[in-house]
Amino acid sequence: MVVGQIPAQQAAEFSVDLPRRKAVGWVFIALGLLSILFALFILLLLLYDVVHRGLPYLTWEFLTGFDSRFPSRAGVLAALAGTVYMMGFTILFALPLGIMAAIYLEEYAGDSWFANAVQINISNLASVPSIIYGLLGLQVFVRVMGLNRSVLAGALTMALVILPIIIVASREALRSVPPSIRDASLALGATKWQTIRHHVLPYAVSGIMTGNILAAARAIGESAPLIAIGALTFVPFTPNSPLDLFTVLPIQIFNWTSRPQEAFHDVAAAGIIVLLVVLLILNSLAIFLRWRFRTQF
């Protein structure tokens, strides 16, 4: 310690008390650790409950069979296929629309009143309850456009739900591109579009993909808007065309849990496991993509 070298009268003005200052820090660390342990504990409890109840039903027959009146013969195939089918279309609609809107808003719209109005509306839309989109989808896609309760109607509705999330996430990714990269490109005589195409998008792509996949994950877990447009709860077939009737995992799970037989609740748990695995796969994909683009150079 160099305290001895400090002039006495100056040292007197400080009350160092390092132990107390460090103790405050330790208390904070302990509180943070407790919070995360609490959250983990609840999560593990839920997982345990689901796995414990659902695992016995999680058989090959469960994955390849259709729903049934008997818990032991109930299968998840229709819901799984419906989810995959619908999500494919959802991404097909939402991804290009969302990314292009984000590029326009972030790179071209500037600071005009129009851009600001759009910005505020998108932020609001992102927090609108999804049931509202369901009602909109019911009116526009199911009734006016006559798409019926089809995969296409569901996908379009779901695209509406996640569009604001995709736009917000993509804009965030675009905004994180360092201005120095844009400057470098523009200073070489590149046009604005060349700069976006060759530098901004490649730089932002991992962020954009991550945002998009997380939005898709959210869509997979949504049931409210699909219930609103009237997706079926008992579907003994896999959809063959975009205009076929369909169901999805959350609806199927919801359906099983609301049946009176106790055994169906365990079937629901098995369905939840399938849903969780699908989500896990998507999240891993997001992580992989981010890593892939980041380690490109």
Binding site: P178, S180, I181, D183, A184, S185, L186, A187, L188, G189, A190, T191, H199, P202, Y203, F297
Partner: peptide
Amino acid sequence: VEVRRRIGMVFQKPNPFPR
């Protein structure tokens, strides 16, 4: 855009493209 091709620029912090 044409002006910038004829007048090159080097910035304060080195900013190579990530390529």
